[in-house]
Design a protein around this nucleic acid. Structure first.
Length: 311
RNA sequence: GCCGAGGUAGCUCAGUGGUAGAGCACUGCUCUGAAAAAGCAGUGGUCGAAGGUCCGAUUCCUUUCCUCGGCA
């Protein structure tokens, strides 16, 4: 009866690293299994929004959920990319939208879970990404100009963009130039689509102290029996140290340790500290979105979802 | 006890006769095909203590306390 009203619904569970997103999502999904809920939906499936968990083989270091932890709930967008290649926002957006529609078509509720704010935003706001694929050769060439050179060039080719770009940020300058050079014309801000979904965004709130403790605990667990170090060693059979360092955090510092660039103690300190920084950056990102409802326990999350599904 | 080195921002240290800086940490922020990425901004010090010289001392001199090496 109420299936029609749940048809385009989408729930997002987000939060900083080590806040317990995956657990909560599974818990919520289990509660909605068909026959057990009063909302007339056929269950729920989870879509990951994590820029590292998309890669095959990045398991322990990225905190990927295990088969067992999934408890029978389907998970999408894990292990969809080869770590040798770079996965991008646009790819994520396409795959995520496809997954959402697939899930909704079967009368189930899609739950996006993750900490990559940019990825989440790309589907929640339906960002329009300029149709210019990354050209790594061009980027390399451009980078040689340095930020000063690139900024000058952009000023000439796309003065409007140059006006509000972060003039000292090489990544932004490269992309802006890439767009002008490839399309031949200045591409101005591309705007957003109004979202096609009815969305509930729930954020998990944790105090800095709690987060710190969770990160620490989690790190100790990953280090047990050399599990994480062995994972990186294994990955190195196919990936360069440079590539591994690009993944950041655990992968960056374990790779540095294995190359004898830093000691084991330094590795641990670095992972801890950088993860704390990362969590902060994530929160800075999320806090801009006033639609997010912040909760601290799973009970509140359940309540919110019930209200949402009943609408 | 003697000799040497040093005490400057939370940490590691630079520096100057005209009341101080860097990196990291900390705080806040940016973000449209690399986002665990890449960037930006801000807070913070009576320069170990007390005297002296000087128009003026964190910088020079004396004393004193503390730390670290070496010798006893």
């Amino acid at each position: 009866m109420s299936t029609a009203s749940t048809k385009n619904k989408l729930v997002v569970i987000l939060g900083p690293t080590a806040s317990g997103k995956s657990d909560l999502a599974v818990k919520l999904a289990l509660r909605l299994r068909s026959g057990r809920n009063k909302f007339g939906i056929e269950g729920a499936e989870i879509i990951s929004a994590d820029s590292r968990q998309v890669y095959k083989g990045l398991d322990i270091g990225s905190g990927k959920i295990t088969k067992k932890e999934m408890q029978g709930i389907s998970h999408w967008l894990l292990d969809v990319a080869n770590p040798k290649r770079r996965f991008t926002l646009a790819q994520y957006q396409k795959l995520a939208l496809k997954a959402i529609k697939n899930i909704q078509k079967r009368g189930k509720l899609p739950i996006i879970v993750g900490g990559t704010g940019f990825y989440i935003q790309s589907v929640v706001d339906g960002i329009v990404i300029p149709e210019v694929k990354p050209d790594w050769k061009l980027r390399k060439k451009l980078e040689k100009l340095g930020v000063g050179g690139m900024f000058k060039k952009l000023k000439k080719l796309d003065p409007k963009r140059a006006k509000n770009i972060d003039a000292k940020n090489p990544r932004r300058l490269v992309r802006a130039l890439e767009i002008v050079l490839k399309t031949g014309k200045p591409v101005q801000k591309s705007g957003r689509l109004t979202s096609q979904f009815s969305i509930l965004q729930i954020g998990i709130k944790k105090s800095p102290g709690e987060l710190k403790k969770n990160i620490h605990k989690r790190l100790a667990k990953r280090l047990k029996k050399n599990a994480m170090i062995n994972e990186v060693k294994k990955l190195h059979r196919a990936l360069s140290w440079k590539r591994l360092e690009e993944f950041g955090l655990e992968y960056r510092f374990v790779a540095q340790y294995l190359q004898n660039k830093i000691s084991k103690e330094q590795m641990i300190e670095k992972i801890q500290k950088e993860s704390e920084h990362f969590a902060k950056r994530q929160m800075t990102w999320f806090q801009r979105d006033k639609r997010i409802i912040w909760i601290s326990g799973s009970h509140k999350a359940k309540q919110r979802i019930d209200i949402f599904l009943n609408k």
